[in-house]
Design a binder for these strands. Structure first.
Length: 281
DNA sequence: CACTTGACCTGTCCGC
DNA sequence: TGCGGACAGGTCAAGT
C-alpha cells in the first residue's frame, strides 16, 4: 500500500507506543511473511523506530533490526488500550484481531500486541544485522522530504531516463525513494505535467514544478495520513478509513478541482494512472 | 544499460 | 446466483 506518507505515519504512531517495550513472543502464522529466527528477537527491547523509503525498521537491544515492508496490502495494527491501525485500509480493519489476513503477531511484555496483516502476502518482515545486512538500503534513491533533495538532485537523478514517462520515472525507487502509484499521479497533477510526458521533454520550470509537486503531495499525505489513513479507533472500529482527499487518484470521470476538466484514467508502466488532460500538459 | 512485461498472492467488484 | 475477467497503494526477475 503504503507509500512514504503512510509508512511515516505508522512510524510516528508506533514510536510513541512500543519504544522501550520488550518483545515477549513472536507468532508466525504464515512462514513466508517472516525471514529469520524469531527467537533472536524475543526478550529484546525496542530501542528505535525508523523509516527509510517505504521500509520500516525496529532496532533491538542486541543490534538486530526487524525490517518491515508492507508492499501492496500490508497493515500494522497495534493493540494496547486502544487500536492503532496503519496501512492499506480494508474491511478487515473493523474485525477483531487477529483476522484472516493476520500473518505475524508480536506480543510485548505488557501484553500489548502488534499484528502484521497482509491479505496478498507480498509483504515481509526480516530480522537482520544492523551493521552487515542493512547495506542494501543504500541502493535506494534520496529521501524526497530531506532538505538535500533539491531540484538539481531530482533533475540529475531522473534525467538518465529521458525516454521514460515522468510518472514512471519518479516511481523508480533507485531514483527517488518513497513515491508510489498514488503520490506519483498526485505529484504530476500538482505540477500540471502530463504523467506520460517524457522526462527528456521537461522544461526547467517543469522540473521545478515537479520537485515542488512531489514534496507537496507527500507532505499533504502525511498531514492527511495522520487523520484519515491511519486511525486511533475504539476496539469496535470506526468508519472513515476510505476518506479520499486525492485530487486525481481513483477519480476517473470526476471534474478537475482546478479547471473543471474531466479526470481520465490511463495505463502507464502497467499501473493505473489518473490525470486531467485539460490542465496537465 | 534503458525499458517492458509477467510473476508473486488473495480478495473484491463488475458485466454477462 | 454464478462465473470470468480486470483490478488493487510494490518489487523482483527475466525478457527485448
Amino acid at each position: 500500500m503504503p507509500e512514504l506518507p503512510e509508512v511515516e505515519t505508522i512510524k510516528r504512531g508506533l514510536q510513541n507506543k512500543i519504544v522501550n517495550l520488550k518483545i515477549k513472543d513472536i507468532k508466525v502464522l504464515n512462514p513466508n511473511s517472516f525471514q529469520g529466527d524469531t527467537q533472536k528477537a524475543e526478550k529484546q527491547k525496542v530501542n528505535k523506530v525508523w523509516r527509510r523509503a517505504k521500509v520500516l525498521g525496529l532496532d533491538l537491544d542486541n543490534n538486530l533490526t526487524l525490517l518491515f515492508h508492507l508492499k501492496m496490502s500490508g497493515q500494522l495494527v497495534y493493540q494496547g488500550k486502544r487500536l492503532f491501525v496503519g496501512g492499506h485500509p480494508t474491511q478487515d480493519m473493523k474485525d477483531q484481531m487477529p483476522n484472516r489476513s493476520t500473518r505475524v503477531i508480536f506480543t510485548f511484555s505488557d501484553n500489548s500486541k502488534l499484528y502484521f496483516n497482509d491479505q496478498r502476502k507480498f509483504g515481509w518482515i526480516k530480522l537482520l544485522d544492523q551493521i552487515k545486512d542493512l547495506t542494501f538500503l543504500k541502493d535506494l534513491g534520496p529521501e524526497p522530504l530531506d532538505k538535500s533533495f533539491t531540484v538539481e538532485v531530482l533533475k540529475e537523478k531522473i534525467s538518465k531516463r529521458k525516454n521514460m514517462a515522468v510518472k514512471v520515472a519518479i516511481m523508480d525507487q533507485t531514483l527517488i525513494s518513497g513515491v508510489g502509484n498514488i503520490y506519483a499521479s498526485e505529484a504530476c497533477f500538482d505540477a500540471k505535467i502530463d504523467p506520460k510526458k517524457k522526462v527528456g521533454n521537461l522544461s526547467e520550470p517543469e522540473f521545478r514544478a515537479l520537485h515542488q509537486g512531489i514534496i507537496k503531495s507527500l507532505e499533504d499525505g502525511i498531514t492527511h495520513g495522520g487523520s484519515s489513513r491511519a486511525h486511533f479507533v475504539n476496539a469496535g472500529g470506526e468508519k472513515g478509513y476510505f476518506l479520499d482527499y486525492a485530487n486525481v487518484y481513483n477519480r476517473e470521470g470526476d471534474l478537475c478541482k482546478r479547471c473543471g476538466g474531466m479526470i481520465k484514467k490511463i495505463q502507464l508502466g502497467g499501473r493505473g494512472t489518473y490525470f486531467c488532460p485539460n490542465c496537465q500538459s
